[in-house]
Design a protein around this nucleic acid. Structure first.
Lengths: 116, 116
DNA sequence: TTCAAATATCCATGATTCTAGAAATATGGA
DNA sequence: TCCATATTTCTAGAATCATGGATATTTGAA
């Protein structure tokens, strides 16, 4: 991942509706959700949501596939992972020891104590 | 970390000058760097840079401490780590298995094959 | 071919952000 | 006290972004 993609990805997530869209799509992996269902679930006008989906898609965070009349969107977790690796590299390359607590904290995921 | 802080943190990093500032300060941990030095290093007018530092500070990504005439800024890696945990939780809570490749990729840090 | 459903595009408006000049504030030294 | 240094705050113009109404496009069904 190069810097300009990282910036696009960060900007795409730095907006509350879009972050909610991405979260919703992640929770619907791997099936995805039609654009209309996303709009309904988040109570956002369909054209506004379409614009947000376009931003997320341009950043590579989601991907839409036509399926009949609908366009089913899915989260691209690879893109999120790539962003985190990019950010982590900045700190780790300068201070590898700082990665340890980071990894330890992330390692809480597999046990997965329910969140929220 | 709650959502509004996560949004502030993402927005703070989603701007090329600010991302460069943060990166620069990370590379100068744990000593930090005076605001003026940051402005000079990145060739940005000092008041413009001051505004960017303020955004980063409001998001908790940097912290300034007066030291004589200068104000020395330091990166707050805790904030970056908190953001990554927040983002990872979204994907991992729904799909713990997706954390494994993420952790594997991040685990490249300790060996630390030099990057850039 | 005609119609309804699903989504995207066009467009205008209001809000926010980025930028940098000018002025203000804080600090240390003479 | 006076001055130079370091930084922030004030301010305004330009650019970008978010929003949603109206319209266009694509698709499937009758």
């Amino acid at each position: 991942m190069d810097e300009s993609i990282a910036l696009d990805t960060l900007a795409a997530l730095a907006q509350s509706t879009r972050l909610a869209v991405f979260r919703l799509l992640v929770s619907h992996e791997p099936h995805g959700l039609p654009a209309g269902d996303v709009a309904a679930a988040l109570d956002v006008p369909q054209n506004t949501l379409s614009a947000h989906l376009a931003v997320l898609a341009r950043a590579g965070l989601v991907e839409g596939e036509r399926q009949g009349r609908s366009i089913v969107y899915r989260a691209r977790l690879d893109a999120l992972r790539a962003l985190m690796v990019y950010l982590a590299r900045d700190c780790c390359s300068a201070h590898p020891e700082l990665c340890q607590p980071l990894l330890a904290e992330l390692a809480c995921c597999p046990p997965a104590k329910a969140s929220r």
